[in-house]
């Protein structure tokens, strides 16, 4: 599986994502600088965590309008599996590839800790490796992870199986404790928790590995 990690000037989980992808897929990902938007064809695109262009405006708002994201949107619409973590998720909602928005955490504090997640859909491209009803542990580290969408959208997401992960406990005020959502086609996933930080026992567990392995299973 050939993957690409999009690197914005303020990305700071780009190396972590690259390490995880290389460890799990056995292949070094292509690191794509935000100005090099004419990059090679890949099987998987990752938008890492960080502060893309500083995020002094709404998180992800500037990146969503960048050249590189125009290219990512095109490829995602063509069906390339696209995965955004944390700031990556914020960018995906700002582009409209995913519904909803990520607001400041309800208690207004940054939160970094392991959280329990319920895997809500175990058939998807990204989650097929998890057992049905699985509860997993993945860390979060964000200031703006409070997922919001209107009730109709939330009903639709839940009805169509687009909610990938849900927090077991309320950690940031997210509507219906939603931690990660997919697009209708199922090839775009955005999530606040960081699976790339939970890929070996030394880091506290391996529950994050399964997500990457799920994509590999499906892509063969």
């Amino acid at each position: 599986m050939k993957s690409a990690v999009i690197v914005f000037p303020g990305s700071n989980c780009d190396r972590d994502m690259a390490v995880a992808l290389e460890k799990i897929t056995g292949q070094k990902p292509l690191m794509v600088w935000h100005q090099d938007y004419d990059f090679d064809k890949v099987d998987f695109i990752a938008l890492p965590g960080g502060f893309s262009y500083g995020d002094y405006l709404r998180c992800g708002a500037m990146s969503a309008r960048s050249h590189i994201m125009k290219e990512v949107i095109k490829r995602a619409e063509d069906g390339v599996p696209t995965f955004g973590v944390c700031n990556g998720f914020q960018i995906l909602t700002e582009t409209g590839l995913l519904p909803g928005a990520l607001m400041r955490n309800a208690n207004l504090h940054f939160v970094c800790k392991d959280v329990k997640l319920k895997v809500e859909n175990t058939d998807s491209l990204f989650t097929n490796g998890y057992d049905e009803g699985a509860e997993i542990t993945i860390p979060v580290a964000h200031h703006d992870g409070n997922y919001f969408a209107d009730a109709d959208t939330l009903d639709r997401l839940e009805g169509e199986g687009q909610v990938a992960f849900r927090y077991a406990d309320d950690i940031n005020g997210a509507q219906r404790r939603i931690a990660g959502v997919m697009n209708a086609k199922g090839n775009v996933l955005g999530m606040m928790p960081h699976p790339e930080r939970m890929i070996e026992p030394a880091l506290g567990g391996s529950d994050g590995r399964v997500m990457f392995e799920s994509v590999m299973n499906r892509l063969g």
């Binding site: 940054f110 970094c112 960081h194 790339e196 880091l203």
Partner: peptide, 10 residues
Amino acid sequence: WEQYDHMVMG
């Protein structure tokens, strides 16, 4: 310390 990202860099 939960307000500090203490895990980034992996």
